[in-house]
Computed example of a mutant assay.
Amino acid sequence: MKGLKKQRRIQVILVAVVALIASTALIGYAMRDGINFFRSPSQVIAEPPGPTEVFRIGGLVEEGSITRGQGEQISFRVTDGGAVVPVTFTGVLPDLFEENQGMVGTGRYVNGVFQASEILAKHDETYMPKEVIDALKEQGVYQEADS
């Protein structure tokens, strides 16, 4: 009788371990497209990501760089003070998107151009995404806004 209980306990533990491994693998598989790493323009230029890698880029929209193409096609350059990356986007930009303002874009870096699938702009005159502030502080460009 004792041997049967011990064998049953080992079987339950093995099933639990297999279920834990399977659930961890499924969660990892489901999240693989949902995780986007943030990079500043300097990081993108220093170590260009592959054309299939989706990531976020953030910085300031360079003054005088916004050009509108056919339809909803927009091109501009984003900078962190150390490097400049050209960006293309097809779609409607947020109302608060403008030159010399913070932005974060999600997309791919293909042939030296960041092809954005989503663009986020600043919330108000003092807001800037934390990742953008950190990247600008690294470059020595960021200055605190006066309250």
Rank of each mutant, 00 (worst) to 15 (best):
A19F: 11
G58T: 07
Q43C: 04
R39T: 10
S23D: 07
I74W: 02
V15Q: 10
V17F: 15
P86C: 05
D124I: 03
K122P: 00
V85F: 02
A22Y: 09
A116Y: 02
V15H: 12
E47Y: 07
T24A: 15
G50Y: 07
S147H: 03
E144P: 04
E53N: 05
I35R: 08
Q143L: 08
G112V: 05
V132G: 03
E98N: 14
K5M: 10
I45C: 05
A30F: 13
V113S: 01
G112I: 12
F76R: 09
F55Q: 06
L14D: 07
A145H: 13
N36K: 14
F97H: 03
L20S: 07
K137A: 11
V110H: 02
Q70L: 15
K130A: 15
D95Q: 11
Q43M: 04
V15T: 14
F37E: 15
L96G: 04
L96S: 15
Q115T: 13
D33Y: 13
S23P: 01
E72L: 12
G69R: 05
I74D: 00
V104H: 06
Y142L: 08
T24H: 08
S23I: 11
G34S: 14
N111P: 02
Y142Q: 05
S23T: 15
V17K: 06
D95C: 00
S40P: 10
V61E: 05
V84H: 00
F55D: 03
P86V: 04
D134N: 13
I74K: 00
I119V: 13
P129M: 08
V44M: 06
A116M: 01
D33I: 02
